Simulated scan of single mutants.
Amino acid sequence: MPEPVIRPATHADDEELAELDRRAWSPLHAVKPRPQPPYEPFFDARHPPEHILVAESQSLAPGLVGYIRLAPVTRLICNAHVRQIQGLVVDDRVRGRGIARAMLRAACAEARRQGARRVTLRVLGHNAPARALYASEGFAVEGVLPGEFLLEGAYVDDVLMGRAL
């Protein structure tokens, strides 16, 4: 069986995903402050398990080593053909092994399965590795919100990317 396995998340993954999210926090990709106790659950009404695919490993670093959040952009019927990637995280211990690319491809396949025709995402302008990954998988810059976020004393662009399925 190839490593890691990408599968839909379940409610049982909540604690492990929350811990992975805290470990992977970085100003390179996070717009929210570093998580502090008391920690909130990973899943909530806006982010249910059915919007998450996880990468699970038995040998690289046993357990969950990544996740990608794929959700409808809005509740509007006229926008139901679009899905948005609202987060992609890979455990630092297993970076550079193609896990992000595999999850991105799995998310696009899942979006297609759901009937979507487009996938969009937002990425911070200074996150060059993520932007390069997305571009290599067919995502194009569709807009830039200059200086949209003030992160650690610097203004950072919000880059909007998308691709057809």
Rank of each mutant, 00 (worst) to 15 (best):
M1G: 08
M1D: 04
P2K: 00
E3I: 05
P4D: 07
V5L: 06
I6C: 07
D13C: 13
D14G: 03
E16S: 15
E16A: 15
L17R: 05
A18Q: 14
A18C: 09
L20W: 07
R23G: 03
R23C: 04
R23W: 00
R23D: 08
R23E: 15
A24S: 15
A24Q: 05
W25F: 06
P27A: 08
L28G: 01
H29T: 10
H29Q: 03
A30V: 02
R34D: 10
Q36D: 09
P37E: 14
Y39L: 13
Y39K: 01
P41T: 14
F43E: 04
F43H: 13
A45K: 05
R46A: 12
H47M: 14
P48N: 15
P48A: 02
E50H: 09
E50C: 14
E50V: 02
H51Q: 15
H51I: 02
E56S: 10
S57T: 05
S57R: 10
S59T: 14
L64Q: 00
L64V: 10
V65H: 03
G66N: 00
Y67N: 01
Y67M: 09
Y67D: 03
R69G: 07
R69C: 07
A71C: 10
P72D: 15
T74W: 13
I77M: 13
I77N: 08
C78D: 12
C78R: 09
N79W: 11
A80G: 13
A80I: 07
V82P: 02
V82W: 11
I85D: 13
I85A: 10
Q86A: 15
Q86N: 13
Q86H: 09
D92G: 06
D92H: 10
R93V: 08
R97Y: 03
R97S: 00
G98C: 10
I99F: 09
I99Y: 01
A102S: 13
M103T: 03
M103Q: 02
L104A: 04
L104E: 02
A109E: 15
A111T: 14
A111H: 07
Q114A: 13
Q114Y: 15
G115D: 05
G115Q: 14
R118M: 11
V119E: 04
V119A: 05
R122S: 10
G125T: 06
G125W: 11
N127H: 03
N127I: 10
N127D: 12
A128W: 01
P129K: 06
A130W: 03
A130T: 06
L133P: 00
A135I: 08
E137I: 06
E137M: 10
G138R: 02
G138C: 08
G138S: 10
G138T: 00
F139K: 00
A140S: 11
E142I: 02
E142V: 02
G143S: 00
G143N: 08
L145T: 05
P146C: 12
G147R: 09
G147W: 01
E148R: 08
L150Q: 03
L150A: 10
E152C: 01
V156P: 05
D157G: 05
D158W: 04
M161D: 07
G162A: 08
G162K: 06
G162D: 03
L165S: 11
